[in-house]
Amino acid sequence: MSRFRSLFAPLPLLQRNEERWFWLFIAPFLAGFVLFALLPLIASLALSFMDWNLRGTPKLVGLENYADLVNLEGKGKLVLKAFSNTAMITIIAVPLQLAVGMAFAMLLNQKVRGMALYRMAFYLPTVVSGVATAALWTWILGTEGLLNKGLDLIGVAGPAWFNEPESVRWGIIFMLIWAGTGGMTLIFLAGLQQISKELLEAAECDGAGRIRRFFSVTLPLLSPTLFFNLVIGLIGGLSLFTEPFVISGGAGGPANESMSVALLIYRLLIRNLDFGFGSAVAWLLTIVVMVLTVINFRLSKRWVFYDD
């Protein structure tokens, strides 16, 4: 009640003036928020209860799109496929990016000469990631690509990575690790450099070995950085789009094995003009992302250590 009153109580002139400026300064954000976040969000929720393909008027169909979503014999089959592909790629790629990124950061943290050069080498793939590198990888991982030629030398016949249903997702995972590790490395490195040398030296004096020092000092102090990288990695994984689009020419093939959720939404929008069903899929993705984020933040209270 008291809080309620304070909202409407008259303010001193100077403070009121400051408030007015506050709203003026954040006005662009508010406009952007309403136009490019809030209204589209509401519109897509509304569309998910409709049937519309740009021609004619939208028709209310109630929960039909959501019924389609769970109808695994019909339209829902591809949705399930897209979600399971995306989940599989994320669950394998993100922990590997984290582990490799952390390992590189630990190596770089040992007062290395020529640090700038190494840093650049690891980070370059992250900066140029996207279509150009995905195109490059279609060549390296092609049937007669460089990787397979290398495998030939040791007597292994590699698959046509992006053309076979069994290997296409592994090819994408490979690309993601190559492209995503560098960013994480640099963020981990920044985190490692914040850890006080005194603490590590004190642990060493107390007789803690390398492994013990890592798990008892470094890892807990690095946990906020690990958490940050995890959240960023998960969001990136769940919105996977460019790599599957480029390697499959936008089709999500072969046999829908590279279809990601984002690619499916794109296809429903551009190819099928199935706005209602597409919006239902988009909302399902939003809910998944939100729930995962909440779970992530809840769990983080148990293992992330903030010293301030």
Partner: peptide, 14 residues
Amino acid sequence: LVPYQVLIIPEYIV
């Protein structure tokens, strides 16, 4: 936290 994919359909239509 809002995934961009949820916004593209209405934004594209507009």
